[in-house]
Design a protein around this nucleic acid. Structure first.
Length: 186
DNA sequence: CCCTGATTCGC
DNA sequence: GCGAATCAGG
C-alpha cells in the first residue's frame, strides 16, 4: 500500500481526532502503526507527547489559542491526563521512620486491625469491560461483543483473556457453560 | 504484558 | 519517502 492522497487525508483526519496510530493503521489497512507514526512525522503533524520532562512541564505547554486562555489550559490539562487511566487510588502509606518509629509502633498495632470482610463469591458480579473497538483487540483480549454490531458504539469486552480462551474469565463462563451450570443464566 | 508515540537508519 | 526495529514511557 502506498500513501495516496486519500489515505493521507484520512490519516490527517483521524490523527487530529485523537485516534491512536494503531487504530488508524487498522482502519487504513496495509500499514502498521509504525508506518502511520512515521508518516505523521514526515507530514509534521501535531506531536502527541504526553510524558513531559516533569519540571519543564509549564514551559512545554503550547499556546495555540489566545494567550489569555493559556493559564486555564495549563491548570487543567494535567488533571485530565491523570484521571483518564490507572486512576486506582492508593492509600497513602506514609509512615514515620527513624527516631519516632518506635513510639508509633504500639499505637499502630491497635489501629491496624483489618477486618476481612470477604463478600461471598456471587455469580452476579459483572465485569467492568474495557469497551475496546475491533482494531484494539489483541491475542489476549476478551472478544465478547457488547452492543449492536451495526452501531458505531459497538465494542468488545477487551478484558484480559488467557492464552487458551477468546474470552475473559467471566464471559468464558457464559460462552462455555458447563452442563452443571447451564440454566437460565441470562 | 498490554499499550502509546518518538526516533533511527537501511532501503 | 518509507517503515521495521528500537527506544522510552504509562
Amino acid at each position: 500500500m502506498s500513501w495516496t492522497d486519500e489515505r493521507i487525508e484520512l490519516l490527517k483526519k483521524r490523527w487530529s481526532e485523537g485516534h491512536s496510530a494503531s487504530q488508524i493503521a487498522g482502519e487504513l489497512g496495509g500499514v502498521t502503526r509504525n508506518a502511520v507514526i512515521g508518516k505523521v512525522h514526515r507530514l509534521k503533524l501535531e506531536s502527541r507527547i504526553k510524558t513531559v520532562p516533569a519540571v519543564a512541564e509549564e514551559t512545554v505547554v503550547e499556546v495555540r489559542a489566545k494567550p489569555a486562555e493559556a493559564p486555564r489550559i495549563l491548570a487543567e490539562a494535567p488533571r485530565l491526563v491523570v484521571s483518564s487511566q490507572s486512576a486506582v487510588a492508593r492509600q497513602p502509606m506514609a509512615r514515620a521512620v527513624g527516631a519516632t518509629a518506635l513510639k508509633m509502633e504500639e499505637e499502630e498495632e491497635v489501629v491496624a486491625a483489618p477486618e476481612l470482610h470477604e463478600e461471598p463469591r456471587s455469580a452476579e458480579i459483572v465485569p467492568i469491560s474495557r469497551n475496546l473497538t475491533l482494531v484494539q483487540l489483541s491475542e489476549r483480549t476478551c472478544k465478547w461483543p457488547l452492543g449492536d454490531p451495526l452501531s458505531p458504539d459497538f465494542r468488545f469486552c477487551g478484558n484480559h483473556s488467557g492464552d487458551a480462551s477468546p474470552y475473559c474469565q467471566y464471559h468464558a463462563r457464559i460462552a462455555f457453560q458447563p452442563v452443571s451450570e447451564r440454566r437460565r443464566v441470562r
